[in-house]
Design a protein around this nucleic acid. Structure first.
Length: 256
DNA sequence: TGGAATGTTCGGCT
DNA sequence: AAGCCGAACATTCC
């Protein structure tokens, strides 16, 4: 569910409600929802809400509350408490529900903002991206999913990016050459920007902080379209498995 | 009913 | 010794 465009959309829709407000406390409704012991949050001001890769970061006075949304996590402004509400962040005015059906997500507390992942794909230059690719021998699909290589891309957008770049998902990173490496960079930026414009992709659970679904699933060219005609050449989209993830591509447009 | 699902992590193997 | 694979986590849906 939440890859970079979804996390970005959550931040944009939640930030106006929470930035500048003070925290009253955190109610944990599921023990799995918290990754460690917490300091007292009460009275701390939310200075800024931002995205770090796929994660949503509440920058508080004295530390950061990091939301890992896993596969099905959402952050809902003034959300109604339901069976999948795992935690509630209470503010002076209003609250944020952390809902997560599968419980692969969690909240984390960091004294210093997180900085352990690779560069953000929308902040990285084309030159930096091409240079980083050259030292990697893994497949491009695996590499795009690797958060220490670039932060924020998941299974949907990896497939959509590779289709747009017309590169086979199993191609080896270091072997694709400068022309295709630049095409891959431009496809990555274009797909992510368009997905943000559309408010992300809603496959099943994803909604923004106001509970609204995204629209980019209507623009998916390969993801979830196995057997359907390729929008570029009309031949059927194929689904294979790379790095233990379903991988959708057009065998005609994305040759080895 | 089995398998797959937007993700991450860990142990074991090569 | 890095890098890859499979399993595990929890739940729903087809």
């Amino acid at each position: 569910m939440p890859e970079l465009p979804e996390a970005e959309t959550i931040v944009r829709t939640l930030a106006p409600h929470v930035e500048g407000r003070r925290v009253l406390g955190l109610r944990l409704l599921s023990p799995r929802a918290a990754r460690r012991l917490w300091p007292e949050l009460s009275g701390r001001r939310i200075e800024r809400l931002r995205r770090y890769g796929k994660r949503v970061v509440f920058e508080l006075e004295g530390g950061a509350l990091v939301a890992h949304l896993g596969m099905t996590g959402s952050l809902l402004w003034r959300g109604a408490s339901g069976p999948y509400t795992r935690a509630v962040l209470l503010l002076e005015e209003g609250w944020v529900c952390f809902d997560d059906v599968r419980q692969f997500g969690a909240l984390d507390w960091c004294e210093t903002p997180p900085g352990d992942l690779g560069p953000d794909p929308l902040e990285m230059s084309e030159g930096e991206f091409v240079a980083r690719l050259q030292s990697e021998r893994a497949s491009l699909k695996r590499l795009l999913l690797e958060q220490r290589f670039v932060r924020g891309i998941g299974n949907i957008y990896a497939d959509e990016i590779l289709f747009r770049a017309r590169i086979h998902p199993d191609a080896r990173a270091a072997a694709i050459g400068a022309v295709r490496a630049r095409r891959l960079y431009r496809a990555m930026v274009a797909v992510l920007r368009e997905a943000i414009e559309c408010g992300g992709s809603s496959i099943s659970n994803y909604v923004d902080a106001e509970g609204r679904r995204g629209g980019f699933q209507r623009h998916h060219r390969v993801y979830g379209r196995a057997g359907a005609p390729c929008p570029r050449c009309g031949r059927p989209i194929r689904k294979i498995r790379i790095a233990q993830r379903g991988t959708h591509f057009c065998p005609a447009c994305q040759r080895r």
